[in-house]
C-alpha cells in the first residue's frame, strides 16, 4: 500500500506529541483513514525503527512505541464488535465517536495554542521600561548609619563605658555552673506579669555570661511555647519582651 509507506516514513522522521497528535495529522493532512492502516506494517516499522535506533535515542524509541501501540489499540478496538467493548481504560476513548470527540476537543486546544503563540510574538516586540535595581544594589543592606549624628555617637560611647564600669570582673569557675533555664523562664514570666520589659532590663542583674545565655535560651523556649512576644522596633535596638496579649506600643 503506497499510502502506508508515506505514513511509516513520517512516523520515523517527525516527533509527535502523543497519539492524538499523530492521529490528527494523519487524518487532516495525509487524509488517511486510520482504519486502513496495516497492523503488520506498523509493527514492522516499529521493529525496523528499533533496529536503527538501538544505539541512538531511547526516549524517541519509547515515544514511537507509545504512538504505534495506540494505533494498534484503536485498530483492534475497531475490529472488535462494539458490544464486546467494555470501558477498561478510562483514559482512552472506547468508541470511534468517543475518539472523534476527543480529537475535536484536542484540535480546539491546538488552535488556542496557535493563538497564544501569535500573542506572544506580538508581545515580544514590546519592551517594558525596566529600571529594577541591579542585583548588587538590590541585595545591599539599608544604610544603618543614616541620620546618625556625632551626638548619637557620643551617647552610645557613654552608655558602653557606663555599662563596663558597673560590671564585675569576670571570673571563671573550674567547672561551668549548670544553666537553669527553667528557673529563668519562671523569673521572666514573673517579671513580665505587670508590664512588658526590654531585654536589657531582663539581663541587667545577670552575674555572668552563663546567666545571660540561660536568659536567652529561656526567651527562645517561651517564644516557642507561644507565651511571649518578641519585638525589635529598631535595627540593633533593644528587644521588647511581653506576655502574649500584653504588648503595648
Amino acid at each position: 500500500m503506497g499510502q502506508t509507506d508515506t505514513m511509516s516514513y513520517k512516523i520515523k522522521t517527525e516527533v509527535y506529541e502523543g497519539p492524538f497528535d499523530l492521529l490528527l495529522d494523519l487524518i487532516l493532512r495525509k487524509k488517511l483513514d486510520i482504519y486502513e492502516i496495516s497492523l503488520a506494517q506498523i509493527t514492522a516499522d516499529y521493529l525496523d525503527y528499533l533496529r536503527e535506533m538501538r544505539a541512538l535515542d531511547l526516549e524517541m524509541a519509547s515515544e514511537f512505541l507509545l504512538v504505534a501501540a495506540t494505533l494498534l489499540e484503536i485498530k483492534v478496538k475497531g475490529l472488535l464488535s462494539e458490544e464486546e467493548e467494555e470501558a477498561e481504560d478510562a483514559d482512552f476513548p472506547q468508541t470511534r465517536e468517543d475518539l472523534a470527540e476527543k480529537l475535536l476537543e484536542f484540535q480546539k486546544f491546538k488552535n488556542a495554542a496557535d493563538f497564544l503563540e501569535e500573542k506572544r510574538e506580538i508581545e515580544a516586540r514590546f519592551f517594558a521600561r525596566q529600571n529594577v535595581l541591579e542585583e548588587k544594589f538590590a541585595t545591599h543592606p539599608p544604610d544603618l548609619l543614616a541620620d546618625f549624628t556625632v551626638a548619637d555617637l557620643a551617647e552610645t560611647l557613654t552608655a558602653i563605658l557606663a555599662k563596663n564600669s558597673q560590671s564585675q570582673p569576670e571570673y571563671y569557675l573550674p567547672a561551668p555552673s549548670p544553666l537553669n533555664v527553667n528557673k529563668k523562664m519562671d523569673f521572666i514570666l514573673k517579671n513580665l506579669a505587670r508590664a512588658s520589659k526590654n531585654l536589657s532590663v531582663l539581663t541587667k542583674d545577670c552575674q555572668n555570661k552563663g546567666d545571660i545565655i540561660a536568659t536567652f535560651l529561656a526567651l527562645l523556649e517561651l517564644h516557642k511555647q507561644g507565651k511571649i512576644f518578641l519585638k525589635q522596633p529598631q535595627d540593633f535596638g533593644d528587644i521588647k519582651v511581653a506576655l502574649k496579649g500584653k504588648l503595648k506600643h
Partner: peptide, 8 residues
Amino acid sequence: EIKAIRGV
C-alpha cells in the same frame, strides 16, 4: 485531566 485531553 490534561493527559486525557492531549493523549500523552
